[in-house]
Each structure stands twice: as structure tokens, then as C-alpha cells.
Write a protein that binds this DNA or RNA. Sequence first.
DNA 1: GGATCTCTTGATACCTAGTCTCATGGTTCC
DNA 2: GGAACCATGAGACTAGGTATCAAGAGATCC
Lengths: 140, 140
Amino acid sequence: MTEEMLDALDRAGVRLTGPRRKLAALIERREGHFTAADLLKDAGRRRMGIGRATVFRLLELLSEQGLVERIDLPDGTHAYIPCEPTHHHHLVCLNCGATTDVDDCGIEAVTREAARRSGFKIEQHRLELFGRCPDCRSAN
Amino acid sequence: MTEEMLDALDRAGVRLTGPRRKLAALIERREGHFTAADLLKDAGRRRMGIGRATVFRLLELLSEQGLVERIDLPDGTHAYIPCEPTHHHHLVCLNCGATTDVDDCGIEAVTREAARRSGFKIEQHRLELFGRCPDCRSAN
DNA sequence: GGATCTCTTGATACCTAGTCTCATGGTTCC
DNA sequence: GGAACCATGAGACTAGGTATCAAGAGATCC
Ligand SMILES: [Mn+2]
Ligand SMILES: [Mn+2]
Ligand SMILES: [Zn+2]
Ligand SMILES: [Zn+2]
């Protein structure tokens, strides 16, 4: 996945610098969703001397490339999750923070129906699902 | 709608004070989504002497009662929209900010399918639709 | 009406997440 | 190597929100 991120940055025409490589590796080691602060703390613990702005800058780049997405958790906080550039919906475990991508599963039909009823022309949609992941369910 | 908000506050067992009544009236006059800062500016222009914290406090109360919902706009900013306590999805005009409530339109089936595929037990979902409202469409 | 108790208020300080600016330092290209 | 161009970290700044607190309503009891 680090590879994937670096490739995407390369294709985006930006430089593959040290800080970007290190941060990409840190993102790979993360499990579930994380905040920019989490990442910065990871970097700080390893004495990487990476600035806060650099973290936000990389997250923005990755998010433009669709490899990371910012989500709004039910408790009102924000988090980032790594994801594939092709799928756009997420399932988030409220217990451990694990996330999975799900494809549209019929959402297109729902938006078409909503468009018909409301008269809106729908250009974007966002669906976020929250619950318990298989591990957390079996761990009772 | 002001009536509805005041009733809800009453039922919630909090006091119907001057600042709360005034803010409820200001919310009613708003069109589309608004920020806490918008509301505070409205109050300021009318020399209502209402504090910033009071605005956030009321928005939180109303949001607990389901009469207002906080949404995350695609540009990353936050806004509040007035809504009915029974419906949970919103259509937001990217041009003028107008919002409408839509009911589930088949979302339940989508979440069931996502649960089946992922093994998650889904407890909450959030769907936000963005586009152009009928007015903005016809205004070219 | 007054005494009292509780809730609410506005001011202010504080906080988290994110952006902007800028001087410095690496990279790329010739 | 040198010039041009990014990218960097530090630090100031912003938006949106929360915590604290002394003072001011509002409700309750008499
Ligand atoms: Mn995804
Ligand atoms: Mn719903
Ligand atoms: Zn889990
Ligand atoms: Zn519109």
C-alpha cells in the first residue's frame, strides 16, 4: 500500500521526498481510522522531525488521489481512512475503528429515486455506515 | 417552525428563555444551511447581545431533539440544517445551500446488503446527497 | 411580593483541526 | 555547477467548538 501511495504521488507529478515516504510508511502501519494528530505522534515517537503542516499536506494529496478519505465520525470528530480510489463508501467499526470499503450496493437507485422525488439534480453522494466489525462481534 | 422548536425545548425540560426564543426565530428566517457564525452574526446585527456559547448551546439542544442536524459539506466546512425529527437524510444544493429531507428511499436494503457482504452489524448510517435544487437548475 | 434555589447567560480562556506565510533547504534540469 | 523550482518545518492564524465562572433570569415556596 505504501507502494500504491508513492505511485499515485508520482503520477500526480509531485516529488517523492523523504518526509512523504516516511509518512506513507506510517500510514501503512496504522489500523483502522486515524487522525492527523495520530500520524504526527507516530512520527514524533520515531524522532522523524516531521512538521505538522507536512502531515496535512500529504493527507490532502492522498485524498485528491482517492487513496485516503476524510470521514466524519458519529461523535463529531474527523478521521482519515486509507482506501481504494475506485470505491467510495465505508463501513466503520464503532468499537475498534476498523474500516472496510463497500461498493455501491444499490445506492445509485436510491439517489435516482431521491432525485425524482425532490427535483434535485444529484451530483455527489456520501454514505457512511457504522457498526461492529466481525471481530468485535465475535469478541462479544 | 419556531413553535416546533420551542415545544421541543419545553418537552426536553429546559427553560424557554429570551435568548432561546430569539435564536429560534432567527433560525426560522434562515434559508438553507447555516453556520453557528451566521446565526451569531444575525443576532449581532439586531443588537441582541447574544453570546457565542449560547448559540452553540442551543444548536446542541435542537440537535439532540432532532430539529437541527449538523452536516459536513463537501468543501470541508460544517453547517447546520433545520429538519424534521423523523427523517434522516438530506439533499443539499451546492449552489444556494437549500436543503430538503428525503426519506429512506431504499437505503435499508443497501445497508442490509453491505452488512451481508462485510459481516459487519450495521447500527447507524448517514447518507448525504449533494447537487442542484430545482430553482438553481432552472436559473440555468 | 419576597427569599431562595436552580438553570441559563455572556465573557473569556482554551482547544483541536486545519490553513497560510515565509525563510531555508532539497531536487531537477540544463 | 548553477538556476529554477518544489517541499519543508516553524510559527502565526483561523474556524468551529468546549470549559469555566461570576452574574442574571426563571421557577418554587412561602
Ligand atoms: Mn473507500
Ligand atoms: Mn435513514
Ligand atoms: Zn471492530
Ligand atoms: Zn439551489
